[in-house]
Every structure is written in C-alpha cells, then in structure tokens.
C-alpha cells in the first residue's frame, strides 16, 4: 500500500472578498521512498497543498473536503489529535526561507532538544546527543559549537541544513519541503539538493518537493505533479513529463526555462498571469492563456490517464508527443 493517498483534497480560504479555492480537488499517491515534485507558479496552490498535508492551514483557510490517507489513517477525518502525534515525528516539513524558520531568540540546542522531547521520552542528555548526530548527518562541522549558537550566527545555507536536521530528528516517513532552496545561492542550492538526495536514499523517506523551479526538481524527483489554479493539471514520471509534456501549460513552463542551446534566441513565455483564485475562468482554468483553447475548453476537463502513468487535465493535450514516442 502506498504511504500517502490524497483524494479530492479541497482547501478553501474564507476571506471577506469571497471564498478562495486555493486547493480544489487534488489527488495523488506517494509510495515509500518516492520523491514527488510539486510544481507550479505562485498562487497555484502548491504550498497550501503542503500545509494541508501536515494540518497547518491557518484560518481563514481550512480543509473542506477530501481524504488524506497516511499509512492507512484518514487524517482529515481523524483531525488535529492524529496530526499532533504525526507532526514532526512521521511527517516533517522544511520551509522556504531559512532566515525565518528558526526562532531568532532561541539557541539551536533548545530548538532541537524540544523537538526530540516532543515525541520521544528520553533524557535531556540523550536528546542533545540525538541533536548532535542530526547535525553531523546534514554535514555540519563542529556540531557542539553550533548547538550553542543562535540562528543569526549561521549563513542561509547552514540554517537550512539545521532546519533539515530538525526535520530528520525522528526519521520521518515523509518530508514536505516547501521551496527549501529558493532563497539560497545557486552553489548552496546544489549542495542542499545533493544532501537531500543522499538522505532520502539513506533513510528511505518519501519526499514532496514543492517548487516553481523545474530545473531544480527535474534532477531530483521521481515523479512530477504540475499544479495550476488549485488543481493538478499534469502528472507523470519526471523525465517523460519534461521531454514530452502533455498539457500546454506544462509545455509553456518547460519552454520558459532558459536552456542555452541557441544563443540569443527569444525565450518562449506564457502570456498573461495566474488567475485570481476569487475569480477563476469558466471551464479549463488555463483557457484564457492557452494557445490551443477553443469553445470545447469551456467545459472543465477531468484529470485523465492518456498513457500508462501519464495523466493530464486537458481537452487538447499534446498527444502527438506520445505518438512520437510510440513511433520511435
């Protein structure tokens, strides 16, 4: 059985201006040890999906319907008590901005020890030793000194390592990483990525890597799920999605990444911007920006399996890409 099954998850924000359907009908599954890349632009609902999975959607938002079945238990039905026992222990999360995730007025040892003690009945000394080992594991040298430091004495990359070490303290089954390298330098980004890849392989934990950066995730994830306006619009194995995208939006995303093949070639772009969640277009949500849209797109398509392991939510998918693969 898969580790995580998400079925028709809907997380809505009840604002003064109306209901913002940040996540609306998201379904996917994740096996143990698998790495899923959750890709989308700002406002596509990828972060809210992540927070929904760990039960940390802040008011005015809440999970309104759907199932999040984690290791056989539906967390939406079980509610906060179930989440409290899992959070930090079996499901951990890493945030986007390492400058903000560590409490500035508490020492690293305090922040790590409290995490150990939240889920394990051990002595302080034992908890401190576990914290030390976790720091060593993420490649931090002189962990004893580091434990006694405050977050502001660390660089961004170091802080993100500490955050990852904290997430790893209880060897969780699932880590949700919400754009953890976006705020870092490219070289540090690469270090963190390879570190995470190594840790995933070592511990066999599953990972959901939320990002807007296709280049980052394509080298890391086993599978990709592309989100747009609160929905998954395409899903499949990473290499195949990148090489032969089915949805015009995915194709647009991939083409707008500079690849440097041709010097001074104009970069393709997706015209327009993501629609407001309070005022979504009728039918396919990508229709107003889509080069292939016609009247048939006024009816919203379902996420359909177009080839084995390839799903897309589109009336006019790039199926010719699939046929090419069949011919060749």
């Amino acid at each position: 059985m898969s580790l995580l099954q998400v079925r028709d998850l809907a997380t809505h924000f009840f604002t003064r201006d109306g209901v913002a359907k940040a996540v609306d009908g998201v379904s996917f599954t994740l096996d143990r040890g698998e790495i899923l890349g959750l890709v989308g632009e700002s406002g596509s609902g990828k972060s809210v999906t992540g927070f929904s999975l760990i039960g940390l959607v802040d008011p005015p938002g809440r999970v309104v319907s759907g199932k999040i079945v984690f290791d056989g238990t539906d967390l939406v039905a079980a509610g906060e008590p179930a989440w409290r026992t899992l959070r930090g222990k079996r499901i951990a999360m890493i945030f986007q901005d390492p400058m903000m995730t560590l409490n500035p007025v508490l020492r690293i040892d305090t922040q790590m020890v409290e995490t150990v003690l939240a889920h394990a009945d051990v002595s302080r000394a034992e908890a401190l030793e576990r914290a030390r080992q976790a720091l060593v594991r993420v490649g931090i040298s002189a962990p004893d000194d580091r434990l006694k430091s405050y977050p502001h004495q660390f660089s961004g990359g170091m802080r993100q390592r500490v955050a990852i070490a904290i997430a790893l303290l209880h060897e969780p089954d699932l880590i949700i990483a919400d754009e953890p390298t976006t705020a870092l330098d490219v070289t540090i980004q690469a270090q963190i990525l390879s570190e995470v890849q190594r840790l995933c392989a070592e511990t066999g934990m599953a990972l959901i890597w939320i990002t807007h950066d296709l280049a980052v995730v394509s080298g890391l994830a086993d599978r990709l799920a592309v989100m747009y306006a609160g929905r998954i619009i395409e899903e499949g194995e990473t290499a195949r999605v990148i090489e032969r995208p089915l949805h015009p939006y995915t194709k647009g995303l991939i083409e707008s990444v500079p690849h440097g093949k041709k010097h001074r070639e104009m970069l393709a772009q997706i015209k327009g911007m993501t629609p407001s969640l309070l005022n979504l277009p009728q039918g396919c949500k990508f229709r107003p920006r889509c080069p292939r849209a016609d009247d048939a797109c006024l009816e919203e398509p379902a996420l359909a399996e177009l080839a084995p392991g390839r799903r897309a939510r589109c009336v006019h998918p790039h199926v010719e890409a699939l046929q090419e693969t069949l011919v060749s």
Partner: peptide, 21 residues
C-alpha cells in the same frame, strides 16, 4: 512568522509554542 509555524510543524504542543516561541 514562519518560525512559529515551523515550531508547530515540529510537533510541539500549542502551549509550548505560545509560552516559549
């Protein structure tokens, strides 16, 4: 702040999040 959310994501009790963080 993210560090409060992160503290909750670590599985700390609401009481500890408020009285310490």
């Amino acid at each position: 702040q993210d560090y409060v959310k992160f503290a909750r994501a670590k599985g700390l009790s609401a009481r500890r999040v408020v009285t310490v963080h």
